[in-house]
């Protein structure tokens, strides 16, 4: 029978906290860039101009269809050679997850925008609005409200995916856990605690999402996936 011993984990809990901060930092960075970029991609993809819609569609589909770990390795190992820049684990992770999440956010934006009834477009045009005005003033404010659950769900997915940065030595929670496990020879306790930390944070966020969804459902507003 294995004897569990958490003292090593508790004594070194500072490392894990730092790791959690690292996870939150990379998630935050990816959100900060991914959301606006996703909106731009969605608007481009919906544009009547083919030269805008086509490349946007390709970027979205490519980054949704290839594994994020391949993307991360590409940006970490290949991009610095092409661009002649100093690549750090943080920069590679930031680039990868900003673009990768923007591709997914773009589809959320698009689903929200196309879910708005045609009549709203027509009413906006009938009072003389041009397409960009109608999009900004009438369509997007309504669409964003419907997208909130899908957004939060995507953000949670993003946080889970950021664990991949551990493979390029960015000090996120998983990376710190791995270091700690090797240092203390207590992998069971370390990885179990790490899994529980992730579970607590992510499950907590999921509960918030469900609460928001229920509130939206009560107010009679539909949501998009």
């Amino acid at each position: 029978m294995y004897e569990w011993d958490f003292t090593a984990v508790i004594e070194n809990s500072g490392l894990l906290w730092q790791g959690l901060l690292g996870t939150l930092a990379i998630t935050g960075t990816a959100l900060a860039f991914g959301l606006p970029l996703g909106l731009m991609l969605a608007l481009s993809r919906l544009s009547p101009r083919k030269w805008l819609a086509w490349p946007a569609g390709f970027i979205i589909e490519f980054f949704r269809t290839t594994p994020p770990l391949v993307q991360l390795f590409w940006f970490f190992f290949a991009l610095p050679i092409l661009m002649d820049i100093q690549m750090t684990p943080y920069l590679a992770a930031a680039i990868t997850f900003s673009i990768q999440s923007s591709a997914f956010f773009a589809e959320v934006f698009r689903a929200g925008i196309v879910s708005i009834e045609r009549g709203q477009w027509e009413a906006a045009r009938a009072i003389g609005m041009q397409r960009p005005q109608a999009m900004r003033r009438i369509i997007l404010p309504q669409a964003v409200k419907r997208m909130i659950p899908a957004f939060t769900e995507r953000s949670i997915e993003l946080m889970k995916t950021t664990t991949l940065v551990a493979t390029v030595s960015y000090a996120d929670l998983l990376y710190q856990a791995n270091e700690l496990a090797q240092k203390t020879f207590r992998p069971i306790e370390v990885f179990t605690v790490t899994a529980l930390i992730y579970f607590t944070v992510i499950f907590g966020l999921s509960l918030c999402v469900q609460a928001v969804e229920r509130r939206l459902a009560v107010s009679g507003d539909s949501t998009v996936r």
Binding site: Q120, A126, M129, I138
Partner: peptide, 24 residues
Amino acid sequence: SEDELTKVRQKVGMVFQQFNLFPH
């Protein structure tokens, strides 16, 4: 052109069967 139509539409008001008020 979109510009021209935008000007015409300001001079021609329209009321829809489904109202199409802006709910927000």
